[in-house]
Design a binder for these strands. Structure first.
Length: 483
DNA sequence: CGAGAGTACTATAAAGTACTCTCGGTGCATTATT
């Protein structure tokens, strides 16, 4: 076991950081003690450093389960850049012969990145059992809970995967997990909660101002949006619950404000999405009008604002999305434009996600047809059919899941309409005990308007040279001048 | 759930009415007959 001083020395030499970020050391020590660990770290908290660091010291073979091909590719590239060459990803972007080559020579790699779907492939899992896995990392572990039951059911296979691999040391990483999500993660992986070390860091973002604004209709929403955008400085993300609306409003922003915007959603082709993301990262465009497709793995530090044109489906998505602002720790704002009738979108989506009982019954009485039906709902039924769910169990499961989603939606509404401190409400929702006494906190129109008035002065000298300056003092100073 | 598109009907015809249908986020992995 190495001392803290030795670990810091390695951190400096191998990763060029002077200090660990909050929580990193505790998580590493937990792993060094061979303790299965669920770690909740805020976005930008340096999650990938943890397994890389452990990997450099212990030289284990690490299997990292990741939800997106782009995230896997990103990590492999970064590790190569750091000089760690023994990293590979197996996914559908590999051509057939190269894929076979990689699987055959899997023992040459130390870091293996895969999706849950790839892990459901027999050839892959058998080979992983042969070469042996010392550390299993579940990145974005909340996906087990959020996506498993109805979107990407292979997430529900991970418990079996862990067993097949001989229950290796396991690290679960996520930025947002309330009590229920934590339960789903541990339960899904077959853990006894008492035997897992759960490390929770404060998820508070003290530099983020949180605002919800009531609007009565779409026109008022657009006008409010344009007027705010004309005053805001820097780059931002606007979230939508519909692809077509994201495109429309992006266009309107270009016509009605002094900002440049592009849309981003899952219906666009991968290359175009990649290009738009790059332009945003390089500050070539200021605004992305996006659906929830824009998010995971977006590592832009100077996002100054996140606006919700539609409110999200649940608090966890909301918190992830507003958390993409201000990773540079400088002041930033989140604004939710609330129109009650937007609830229809969510009600429709919830309703539309689940096969109704007549389709389930038809599928169960004609199981051979499930092979040929390629639509999402049939595929979902097929997954559960293959996993020995009875027809009634499945109907009950979907019914429960549906009512859970409705509950989450209600929580979202409760939050939006809550008149007290939004930050406090959110921290409480995630079981974060942290107390705060921020002035620049939430839902205070005059503070928010002052921010808009002074935000150009706040950043005009360039934030890089002013890192050390206490922005809260600076903000106060400017406000005093104004008063 | 409900907005908006599409269809059918009314009947000197055109435009209004009433009804039905569709759509509304997330992404792995696809391997075969054009």
């Amino acid at each position: 076991m190495k001392s803290e001083i030795e670990l810091k020395k390695i951190l400096k030499e191998r990763f060029s950081f002077d200090e660990f970020k909050p929580g990193q050391l505790e998580i590493l020590q937990s792993l060094f003690n061979q303790q299965d660990t669920l770690a909740i770290l805020p976005t930008g908290g340096g999650k990938s450093l943890i397994y890389q660091f452990y990997g450099e010291i212990m030289q284990p073979r690490i299997l990292i389960v990741s939800p997106l091909i782009s995230l896997m590719q990103d990590q492999v590239n970064r590790m190569n850049y750091l000089g760690i060459k023994k990293a590979i990803t197996i996914n559908s972007s590999l051509d057939f012969s190269y894929r076979n080559y990689v699987i055959k020579n899997l023992d040459r790699y130390q870091y293996i990145f895969v999706s849950p779907e790839t892990l459901s492939n027999n050839q892959v899992i058998n080979r992983l059992m042969e070469v042996g896995i010392d550390l299993l990392v579940i990145d974005e572990a909340h996906c087990i809970s959020q996506w498993g039951p109805d979107f990407r059911p292979e997430y529900l296979n991970l418990g079996q995967v862990k067993t097949d691999l001989g229950d290796p040391l396991t690290l679960m990483l996520t930025a947002t997990a309330n009590e229920k999500t934590r339960f789903d993660i541990l339960n899904g992986l077959g853990f006894d909660k008492k035997r897992v070390k759960i490390i929770v860091n404060s998820i508070d973002r003290p530099n983020l101002f949180i605002n919800c604004v009531d609007v009565h209709d779409e026109n008022q929403k657009d006008e409010t949006l344009f007027s705010i955008l004309n005053k805001l400085n820097g780059s931002g993300i606007i979230y939508f619950s519909s692809k077509s609306k994201a495109e429309q409003v992006s266009q309107l922003i270009n016509e009605n404000t002094n900002k440049a915007s592009l849309p981003y959603h899952g219906g666009m082709d991968a290359l175009q999405r990649f290009k738009i993301q790059q332009q945003f990262m390089k500050d070539e465009i200021e605004i992305i009008c996006a659906t929830s497709a824009f998010g995971m793995g977006i590592d832009k530090s100077n996002v100054r604002f996140v606006i919700h044109y539609h409110f999200p489906a649940n608090i966890q998505d909301y918190y992830q999305e507003i958390g993409r602002a201000g990773r540079d720790q400088l002041p930033c704002v989140s604004i939710l434009l609330f129109n009650y009738s937007d609830i229809n979108i969510h009600n429709g989506l919830i309703d539309n996600t689940y096969p109704d009982s007549s389709l389930i019954h038809y599928a169960y009485t004609h199981p051979n047809l499930l092979e040929t039906f390629k639509d999402e709902k049939s595929q979902l039924i097929k997954f559960y059919y293959d996993h020995d769910y009875s027809e009634l169990d499945l109907i009950e499961l979907f019914k429960q899941r549906k009512s859970q989603k409705q509950q989450q939606l209600n929580q979202m509404l409760e939050y939006i309409q809550y008149q007290g401190c939004k930050r406090e409400w959110l921290l409480n929702y995630f079981g974060d005990k942290k107390k705060h006494d921020l002035e620049f906190c939430c839902n205070n129109d005059s503070l928010f308007n002052n921010y808009l008035l002074v935000s150009d002065k706040l950043f005009e000298t360039g934030h890089r040279t002013n890192q050390s300056m206490n922005w809260q003092d600076k903000l106060k100073k400017i406000f005093l001048l104004k008063n």
